[in-house]
């Protein structure tokens, strides 16, 4: 029966594993801390997960297509800093500054994809380059100094609620739904997975590989851009040093959610669960006042556990 489940639908199985793991974490922390299951804390977990969550969703597309995007945190910092700059120093309307910054995030992603296409170099290398370029752009825009104190109307809107949800959570949910539709319901999503699965077959069968790759990286850039906006809204600042190392956390969440690091298999739901696992772990350990030394240890142990899971997964 188990073997049958295994062979019938891998994705569902991985999602079930991830859910089980999340439930176990949740059960443990709700027993250990009375605050864990409170509405406010759930809200905290979700808001704290929004930045990494959006970056991870963008990364899901790139990983599905067989690439890797290391530039996401750099692009995130660039977009947040740029938007803060436009709002505070430039006096732009948020209706202009937000789409502009997110658009430039998309442009960063587009450039990465374009360069991967023309150089045929591994996206690992190209995006590593873009990581530095975007980070540098953030430094240049801000002259290396955080831009603090955004216009009141922007902050009160960004830190307030909409439809009963925190704005970052709302943006995260919209991002999840759009990504889910793109990946599972459209030809582009299917082509992304096929490209990551067997690039030769994709090309031989007329899948426009270059265009698909371009779209995945552009999407990742846009998602990083929105993540940057959330970072900016939450911290009330454009910080060019924001989120160093976040790109790896985002990729970790995607893999934890059952995606194949070498492409061809990835789900949005899995990624979201992966983000939640990491977020719940961090939040729970904070609630229990576990010291930083042991927090780092636990996060490491969870990743090793995830590696074991993926080993079981590959033994089909």
């Amino acid at each position: 029966m188990f073997a049958r489940l295994f062979t019938q639908n891998q994705n569902r199985l991985y999602i079930a594993q991830c859910l089980l793991f999340l439930a176990a974490l949740g059960a443990f922390f709700s027993l250990a801390s009375p605050y864990f299951l409170s509405l406010g804390n759930v809200n905290n977990v979700l808001t704290a997960g929004a930045v990494i969550g959006l970056m991870a969703i963008g990364a899901t597309f790139v990983i599905a297509s067989g690439g890797i995007d290391l530039s996401s945190a750099g692009v995130m910092a660039f977009c947040g800093t740029l938007c803060a700059f436009c709002l505070q120093k430039g006096g732009w309307s948020p209706w202009l500054a937000l789409p502009f910054s997110i658009g430039l995030g998309g442009l960063c992603g587009f450039l990465t994809g374009f360069l991967v296409n023309i150089t045929e170099a591994p996206s690992f290398i190209v995006s590593l380059g873009m990581m530095s370029v975007a980070r540098a752009a953030a430094y240049i825009v801000s002259k290396g100094m955080p831009i603090y104190g955004l216009p009141d109307n922007v902050i009160s809107a960004g830190q307030g609620q909409m439809l009963g949800l925190q704005v970052p959570v709302l943006l995260l949910i919209v991002g999840i739904v759009l990504a889910w539709i793109l990946l599972t319901q459209t030809q582009f999503g299917l082509h992304t997975l096929i490209l990551g699965d067997n690039a030769f077959a994709a090309q031989a069968m007329g899948v426009p590989a270059g265009r698909v790759r371009l779209k995945t990286f552009t999407l990742a850039g846009i998602y990083s851009g929105v993540a940057g906006i959330i970072f900016m809204l939450r911290t009330n600042s454009g910080d060019p040093t924001a989120g160093q190392g976040y790109e790896l956390i985002a990729i970790t969440a995607v893999i934890l959610g059952g995606a194949n690091l070498f492409g061809g298999r990835a789900t949005i739901i899995g990624t979201v669960l992966g983000v939640l696992c990491l977020g719940v772990l961090q939040n729970g350990l904070n609630l229990l006042a576990v010291s930083t030394y042991y927090q780092t240890l636990f996060v490491g142990l969870v990743l090793i556990a995830a590696a074991f899971l993926s080993r079981v997964r590959s033994q089909r």
């Binding site: 997975l193 096929i194 699965d197 067997n198 077959a201 031989a204 069968m205 194949n260 061809g264």
Partner: peptide, 13 residues
């Protein structure tokens, strides 16, 4: 149409 020796299938699909 060609049927390739390695089949050119997307194995995870």
């Amino acid at each position: 149409e060609m049927v390739y020796q390695d089949l050119a299938l997307a194995k995870q699909q």
